[in-house]
Deep mutational scan, measured.
Amino acid sequence: MSGNGNAAATAEENSPKMRVIRVGTRKSQLARIQTDSVVATLKASYPGLQFEIIAMSTTGDKILDTALSKIGEKSLFTKELEHALEKNEVDLVVHSLKDLPTVLPPGFTIGAICKRENPHDAVVFHPKFVGKTLETLPEKSVVGTSSLRRAAQLQRKFPHLEFRSIRGNLNTRLRKLDEQQEFSAIILATAGLQRMGWHNRVGQILHPEECMYAVGQGALGVEVRAKDQDILDLVGVLHDPETLLRCIAERAFLRHLEGGCSVPVAVHTAMKDGQLYLTGGVWSLDGSDSIQETMQATIHVPAQHEDGPEDDPQLVGITARNIPRGPQLAAQNLGISLANLLLSKGAKNILDVARQLNDAH
């Protein structure tokens, strides 16, 4: 009898209710805020589980004197976190989706994509230029951005401005803007500013005609071990179906173009009346040469937790077992079709030249 009692006690200790789920994140304040929001949602869904947040620095956090596009290494903000995932030191990792490459290392998958916040870019102005827009900034004003995508589009749109690289986390960039006289304004992701509670610093939100956004911008991705079915089931509740389908289309477009950090590629997606609209573009580094096109596809946005595919093969690095396969494939095909259209119009040449120029500098 006593033996059975011990077995029952052991089973209770090993039951999922007692389990601590370890969540990996970057150390920056924004990353911690984003991770806290994901953990809060998981806690609400699984009140019996405990969650421990483990923060670590990544290569991208450490190399702050070089433009991201020049470092010449993929997975700048993800490699150390993936290493911890691989060694079973954490069970899942919360990322900004735009930091996750469209091809993940073997053994990993994006197990959830959370509801997207505003994906557009924002302009934050130096205190002396508050009330201005990019259009009304004085001639030769210097605007800071760490992104080739932003610089290429904005140089084309605002030729009277000069664009220079600015690195560091959000706090560091804002301090550089406010305390030094080098920059009249800087460009940042609206979602990051909003998550930090800095709505009052948003001086201008850039519309798609001015600057399309990065693939996955404004959404959070939760990376897990691809074979860890328990954790895949656990994080599945975080999937937002519309965000998922938009981001599958965007990531398929980028992957098929073979774009990345070192080339200016941008997108804009919208879901309306059962249609998914995808606009994508590529630019030369100075913005003088560009190709942009829009395509659409009829896609039914499923309700969360309709029964999805059981075999769960990944699409552009994403596993969404609780979302039907048909809409996911339709979104992926839309991204591939748009990429093929741009490639047929000469996108590869623009991107190759951009890559060579970026590598040469």
Rank of each mutant, 00 (worst) to 15 (best):
V94P: 05
A152R: 12
R167F: 05
G168W: 03
K345V: 05
V143Y: 06
K87M: 11
E242T: 08
Q292V: 07
N200I: 12
P138F: 08
D311E: 14
E86Y: 15
L177D: 04
W198Y: 11
A122G: 10
H83A: 13
A84T: 11
L234R: 08
K128Q: 05
L338V: 01
V130W: 06
Y213I: 02
L244A: 04
T269C: 15
S165N: 11
Q50Y: 12
E80P: 08
V316T: 03
K115L: 13
G221I: 13
G48Q: 14
K79C: 10
Q217V: 01
F108S: 05
H83D: 12
L220A: 14
I323M: 05
S344A: 01
N349I: 07
D307Y: 09
S165Q: 13
G335A: 03
R201E: 00
D352N: 06
D65R: 12
E82M: 03
D121W: 02
P264W: 03
M56I: 14
G326E: 14
G72I: 13
R173L: 04
F163V: 13
H239P: 06
Q296P: 07
F129E: 15
S141D: 07
M56H: 12
D178P: 01
L97T: 15
L170I: 10
A297R: 01
E80F: 02
E179L: 09
Y213S: 04
L49M: 09
D65T: 10
L100Y: 12
H160M: 15
K176T: 10
H300A: 02
V93L: 08
H83Q: 13
K132G: 13
K157A: 13
K62H: 02
F158K: 06
V237M: 08
E258W: 03
D289Y: 11
N169I: 07
W283L: 03
E89D: 11
T294Y: 00
L206K: 02
H160W: 10
A249E: 03
A354S: 04
E250S: 02
Y277P: 02
D240A: 08
L68K: 13
F125N: 08
S146W: 11
S262R: 15
A303K: 14
G131T: 09
N171L: 12
L285T: 09
I71C: 10
A360L: 07
N340F: 07
H207V: 11
L315C: 15
S146E: 02
I205L: 13
I63A: 13
I231H: 01
Q304D: 01
R150N: 00
T279H: 05
D99W: 02
W283S: 13
E73K: 10
K79P: 09
V263E: 14
L206V: 07
Q332E: 13
P208G: 13
D121S: 04
G221L: 04
L276V: 14
N349L: 13
R325I: 15
R355W: 15
R175M: 13
R167S: 08
I336Y: 02
F125A: 05
E310M: 15
G280L: 04
G236E: 00
Q204L: 14
Q194G: 06
D230M: 15
V142G: 09
K345G: 05
L81N: 01
E82F: 15
T279R: 06
E73V: 08
R164G: 10
H256F: 15
L245H: 05
S141W: 05
L85G: 01
A347D: 07
L177C: 07
K79R: 11
Q155H: 13
A214E: 05
Q229S: 04
N118W: 10
R175H: 05
L276N: 00
H207K: 13
N118T: 14
V263M: 06
Q153Y: 13
L85P: 01
V103T: 15
L49E: 00
I53M: 08
L81P: 07
